[in-house]
Amino acid sequence: MTQPTDDLIIRVADDGDFDAVRALYRDLVPSDLPAPEALQRQTYKTMLEHPGLTILLAVIDRQAVASCTLVVTPNLTRGCASYALIENVVTQSNWRGRGIGHQLMQAAIDRAFGDGCFKVMLLSGSGNARAHRFYKTLGFSTTKTGFELRAPGYAPRRLI
């Protein structure tokens, strides 16, 4: 893995990052279900305002090259320690293999533990061995089994 450029900045996404985040998500799920731009903008605004939800961006030369969403959830177990979920992890395809995703994920993990979370969870496609290796380098383990239930009529697409 080559090292990213020295000017890598990891920061919280804001109102002005809508187009950049949307472009990264298109790279993550090229065949995603369509939605009108107005709905996407409103959803993005709702995400930015949602308590405990943070979109992190990895930026090089003012270009967003990677992103993930961190959700910190209050919890009544474990001494009321919160837990975190990381979702929508993406590094722009032409920037992969440079350590950017690793630094972004480490920033998300550090933020979660800094917020008092007792664990950080994520799901990954069951057939995505490359992603599984990546997450294991960050210290994630497969100690639990993940389950999901999709809404009726939603047709998931396999990404490998």
Rank of each mutant, 00 (worst) to 15 (best):
H50K: 11
E37C: 02
D110E: 04
A64T: 03
F18D: 03
A112H: 10
N128I: 07
D19G: 01
Y44E: 04
R96I: 06
V65N: 07
R26D: 05
G99I: 10
Y83K: 12
L138F: 13
R26W: 05
N88A: 15
L76W: 12
T73I: 15
N88R: 13
G79N: 09
L48R: 07
S82C: 15
C80A: 06
E37S: 07
D15N: 01
I60F: 04
T69P: 00
E148L: 15
M1P: 09
W95V: 01
G116M: 00
F113G: 08
E37D: 12
R26I: 05
G52F: 01
R41Y: 06
S126I: 00
M47N: 05
T2C: 00
L8D: 02
F140M: 11
L48D: 07
G127W: 03
A108M: 09
A81N: 08
N75M: 11
Q103Y: 04
Q92A: 10
R22S: 13
K119D: 05
P34K: 08
G139S: 00
L138A: 14
R130Q: 11
V71Q: 12
A107T: 12
G139T: 03
L159M: 15
S141R: 12
T46Q: 15
A38N: 03
Q106A: 05
T137S: 15
L33M: 05
L70M: 10
D115W: 03
L53R: 08
L56Y: 06
V89I: 15
I55K: 01
N75G: 08
R41Q: 06
R11G: 09
I60D: 04
R78A: 05
K136L: 08
R11I: 01
T54D: 01
A131I: 02
L149S: 12
D7A: 04
P156N: 14
V59D: 02
G127I: 00
L85S: 12
V59F: 04
A131K: 02
D7R: 03
R98Y: 12
A35W: 11
F113D: 00
D115I: 00
Q92C: 06
T69W: 03
L123P: 01
A107H: 08
Y83W: 14
D14E: 09
V29T: 13
A13F: 11
K144C: 10
H102K: 14
Q63H: 08
L57D: 05
G79T: 00
W95C: 10
S67L: 02
V12K: 02
A20H: 06
D7S: 06
F18A: 00
C117P: 06
Q63V: 14
V120D: 02
Q63K: 06
E148M: 15
V72R: 06
D115R: 01
H132S: 09
G79E: 02
R133L: 14
N75C: 13
Q63G: 01
A35K: 09
S67C: 08
T137N: 09
L48W: 10
M105N: 05
G79W: 03
L57M: 00
G139V: 10
I86Q: 15
P4W: 08
E87Y: 09
N94Q: 05
V90T: 10
E37H: 05
L24T: 11
Y135N: 11
K144S: 13
F134N: 13
F113R: 08
A58R: 04
V71M: 07
Y25F: 09
D27C: 09
L8R: 09
A23H: 13
G116Q: 01
K136H: 12
V12M: 03
K144R: 14
L76P: 10
F147E: 12
P152N: 12
C117L: 00
S141T: 15
